[in-house]
């Protein structure tokens, strides 16, 4: 009984240790001495996509390449580059693919404006359908034959009197 409990506690402790292990992989990088610059490095790294573990930023990824790229970001920031300059440096080498958020350009209009266009198309369809439905209501009156109209008039008159 106690040994089972020990095992459960042990497994739980092991789980608690996991995040520290993950951190341990990344220690052979040297953060910049200036905390403000290092913060800038982290902010920039978050906007750059890791090429190995796709859909993770190089800040989140533990792959060797992400580590190397973080060091390149450090180097550029230490040399006085701002975020846009560092991103341009990476785009020169890896293409716009490395940007977590693709820039609005002729090639990405569909990407950025597509959803908006779909919403507009949907709204348009709803408006057209509602109009048509309203129009259909009046069309029933118009579609009446003369005979029907006369009957309707007679009925209405009859009710009025």
């Amino acid at each position: 009984m106690t040994s089972l409990r020990m095992m459960i506690v042990g497994a739980f402790m092991g789980l608690l240790l996991l995040p520290t292990l993950a951190l341990a992989v990344a220690v052979d990088e040297n953060p910049l001495a200036d905390p403000a610059l290092e913060q800038q490095v982290q902010d920039i790294s978050k906007t750059l996509r890791c090429l190995v573990c796709q859909n993770q930023s190089i800040e989140d990824s533990n792959s060797d390449l992400a580590k190397d790229l973080r060091n390149v970001v450090r180097e550029r920031v230490a040399a006085g580059d701002n975020g846009d300059q560092v991103r341009a440096y990476m785009v020169d080498r890896y293409g716009e693919w490395v940007l977590m958020s693709p820039p609005v350009s002729q090639r990405t209009y569909v990407l950025w404006l597509g959803p908006l266009a779909l919403v507009l198309v949907g709204l348009f369809a709803i408006i057209v359908m509602m109009r048509r439905r309203a129009a259909d209501g009046t069309q029933i009156d118009i579609a009446l034959s003369d005979e029907d109209k006369a009957r309707a008039k007679a009925l209405l008159k009859g009710n009025d009197e």
């Binding site: 060797d64 390449l65 190397d68 790229l69 390149v72 890896y94």
Partner: peptide, 12 residues
């Protein structure tokens, strides 16, 4: 160092 690789756009 892998630095030239980065300049070549190598990712794997």
């Amino acid at each position: 160092s892998g630095r030239a690789g980065i300049d070549w756009g190598v990712y794997g």
